[in-house]
Simulated scan of single mutants.
Amino acid sequence: MNQYLVTAYDYTDEGALERRMSVRPHHLDAAKTLKENGNYVLGGAILNDKGEMAGSVMVLQFDTEEELAAWQQSEPYITQKIWETVDVKPFKVANVG
């Protein structure tokens, strides 16, 4: 499988954090489905100086670019305008020990 590093930053408008929190259960459900299908490696929130969620980092893996594109088209944080910028780069998890 091809692995990808996803780095995404949230919108910063007033209400952005509240919007994120309302969509978060859907995002986590989607991540659970990714994990069940073997596509989720790891993920978590990027925190701002106040300790509030302001973005995300995920390591995902897909067999094809089409599967990656399908994820991007269905990811709640993308479709619900939580992430303002999304950077996806090819990645390789190091297997140590």
Score class of each variant (00 low, 15 high):
residue 1 M to C: 04
residue 1 M to P: 07
residue 2 N to Y: 01
residue 3 Q to I: 08
residue 3 Q to P: 08
residue 3 Q to W: 08
residue 5 L to V: 06
residue 5 L to C: 08
residue 6 V to N: 04
residue 6 V to Y: 09
residue 7 T to E: 10
residue 7 T to A: 09
residue 7 T to K: 08
residue 7 T to Q: 14
residue 7 T to W: 10
residue 7 T to M: 11
residue 8 A to P: 14
residue 9 Y to L: 14
residue 10 D to W: 09
residue 10 D to P: 14
residue 10 D to F: 13
residue 12 T to F: 08
residue 12 T to V: 08
residue 13 D to T: 04
residue 13 D to R: 07
residue 14 E to N: 05
residue 15 G to W: 03
residue 16 A to I: 02
residue 17 L to I: 10
residue 20 R to G: 10
residue 21 M to N: 09
residue 22 S to A: 03
residue 23 V to Q: 06
residue 24 R to Y: 06
residue 25 P to A: 10
residue 25 P to W: 03
residue 26 H to T: 03
residue 27 H to M: 11
residue 28 L to C: 04
residue 28 L to A: 07
residue 29 D to P: 00
residue 30 A to F: 15
residue 30 A to K: 12
residue 30 A to L: 07
residue 30 A to Y: 15
residue 30 A to I: 00
residue 31 A to T: 07
residue 31 A to Q: 10
residue 31 A to E: 12
residue 31 A to F: 07
residue 33 T to S: 12
residue 34 L to I: 02
residue 35 K to S: 08
residue 36 E to S: 13
residue 36 E to N: 14
residue 37 N to Y: 00
residue 40 Y to H: 09
residue 41 V to D: 01
residue 41 V to M: 10
residue 41 V to E: 01
residue 42 L to Q: 02
residue 42 L to D: 00
residue 43 G to A: 06
residue 44 G to I: 09
residue 45 A to H: 05
residue 46 I to V: 11
residue 47 L to D: 02
residue 47 L to G: 08
residue 48 N to P: 05
residue 48 N to G: 14
residue 48 N to Q: 04
residue 49 D to G: 12
residue 49 D to F: 03
residue 50 K to C: 03
residue 51 G to C: 11
residue 51 G to V: 10
residue 51 G to P: 10
residue 51 G to E: 15
residue 52 E to C: 02
residue 53 M to K: 02
residue 53 M to T: 03
residue 55 G to C: 12
residue 56 S to T: 07
residue 56 S to G: 15
residue 56 S to W: 06
residue 57 V to R: 12
residue 57 V to K: 10
residue 57 V to D: 03
residue 58 M to C: 14
residue 58 M to N: 13
residue 58 M to T: 05
residue 58 M to P: 00
residue 58 M to L: 13
residue 59 V to R: 09
residue 60 L to A: 07
residue 60 L to E: 04
residue 61 Q to E: 09
residue 61 Q to A: 04
residue 61 Q to G: 00
residue 62 F to L: 03
residue 63 D to I: 01
residue 63 D to W: 00
residue 64 T to L: 06
residue 64 T to E: 12
residue 67 E to N: 04
residue 68 L to W: 03
residue 68 L to Q: 06
residue 68 L to F: 04
residue 69 A to W: 00
residue 70 A to N: 12
residue 70 A to C: 05
residue 71 W to T: 02
residue 72 Q to F: 06
residue 73 Q to P: 01
residue 74 S to P: 00
residue 75 E to S: 07
residue 75 E to D: 15
residue 76 P to G: 09
residue 76 P to K: 05
residue 77 Y to T: 10
residue 78 I to A: 09
residue 78 I to D: 07
residue 79 T to S: 13
residue 79 T to N: 02
residue 80 Q to G: 00
residue 81 K to C: 07
residue 83 W to S: 15
residue 84 E to M: 15
residue 85 T to W: 08
residue 85 T to F: 05
residue 85 T to Q: 11
residue 87 D to R: 12
residue 87 D to N: 15
residue 88 V to W: 04
residue 89 K to E: 09
residue 89 K to L: 12
residue 90 P to K: 04
residue 91 F to P: 02
residue 92 K to W: 01
residue 93 V to P: 10
residue 93 V to C: 11
residue 94 A to Q: 10
residue 94 A to L: 14
residue 94 A to I: 14
residue 94 A to E: 14
residue 95 N to V: 06
residue 96 V to K: 06
residue 96 V to A: 10
residue 97 G to Q: 11
residue 97 G to Y: 05
residue 97 G to K: 06
